[in-house]
């Protein structure tokens, strides 16, 4: 171990933990008894049937292999590949998220630049922000009359707050010195906004965007369970209704992996805009 770097040692430890975890999981699932060993009572109670228990990891891995080797098959409304389902979810998340960013970032800029706008809008933000995004769902369904658009609206409404608040906070906190540099160089309001305030506030803004994408991905699963039809959230719920726990566990893992990838993308963006004072 001595010759390995910190990262290498951490990777070895991670793999070890994974292996131990999987082993414990595998061993803790009791094997199904063979039918011949059943007592009369067990047979009468129907306990000899293939029971819907928690599947062992080996079974989940087999499922994952099967699903991931053909992720985009489409065999009717209730049987689509995992790739298609995740694609629907990502499409909804990115649409709602992009709409939210389109509004939150300019509005946040305005609020951050103007103490009056900040004071005027703050009460609305404070009331709207703590509302669970799913609480909007009935209202959205009623007003929009479309389940697809309602899901996107819910993503929109939950992603907007961290971006709005962080943008306003970042813009308001730009050092006066840098604003003075813009002023002494006679930059107009737009040039100042884009060449000084935006880069100065970018780390705070991107942090808000990163929080938002995380929340959006959490919410899409619940939203799709409600609106149904397509998406990874619907898939989980559907497999639960089919009592296919192997698929449920597999899709839970996929939700985690996609969430991690989205977060990592924003991590890259965050490093790109970071600066040291």
């Amino acid at each position: 171990m001595a010759g390995l770097s910190l990262n290498q040692r951490a990777a070895v430890l991670s793999l070890l933990l994974l292996a131990v975890g999987l082993l414990v999981w595998e061993l803790s699932i009791p094997a199904q008894k063979a039918a011949t060993e059943l007592t009369e009572y067990e047979r009468l109670m129907g306990l000899g049937q293939e029971r819907a228990g928690v599947p062992p990891p080996s079974q989940v891995m087999a499922k994952a292999w099967e699903q991931l080797s053909d992720p985009f098959y489409d065999a009717g409304p209730n049987d689509k590949g995992i790739g298609i389902q995740i694609g629907y979810s990502i499409y909804r998340v990115l649409t709602g998220y992009a709409l939210a960013a389109l509004i939150a970032i300019p509005l946040g800029f305005l609020i951050g630049m103007s103490p009056v706008a900040y004071k005027a809008l703050n009460p609305f933000i404070q009331v709207l922000r703590p509302i669970s995004p799913l609480a909007w769902m009935p209202l959205a369904l009623f007003i929009i009359q479309d389940s697809e658009a309602s899901a996107i609206f819910v993503i929109f409404i939950c992603s907007i707050w961290p971006m709005l608040i962080n943008t306003a906070f970042g813009v308001a906190g730009v050092r006066q010195d840098w604003v003075n540099v813009a002023r002494t160089h006679e930059l107009g309001p737009l040039r100042t906004a884009f060449t000084v305030i935006l880069p100065a506030a970018a780390p705070t803004i991107v942090t808000g965007m990163r929080i938002s994408i995380g929340i959006a991905w959490l919410v899409i699963v619940a939203a799709e369970m409600l609106v149904g039809g397509t998406g990874i959230g619907y898939y989980v719920w559907n497999e639960w209704n089919n009592l296919d726990l192997t698929s449920v566990i597999f899709s839970i893992l996929m939700i985690g992996v996609v969430g991690m990838a989205l977060d990592a993308a924003f991590g890259v963006l965050q490093r790109a805009v970071a600066y040291v004072e």
Partner: peptide, 29 residues
């Protein structure tokens, strides 16, 4: 009235823009 490019300022705390390189800080001006 108001700041102008005719009056250049060197601030005590330098006031360089930290996200720009040294060269860019000057080309910016």
């Amino acid at each position: 009235s108001g700041p102008s490019l005719d009056r250049g300022v060197v601030f005590q705390n330098y006031s360089l823009l930290p996200w720009l390189s040294t060269l860019k800080n000057v080309t910016f001006a």
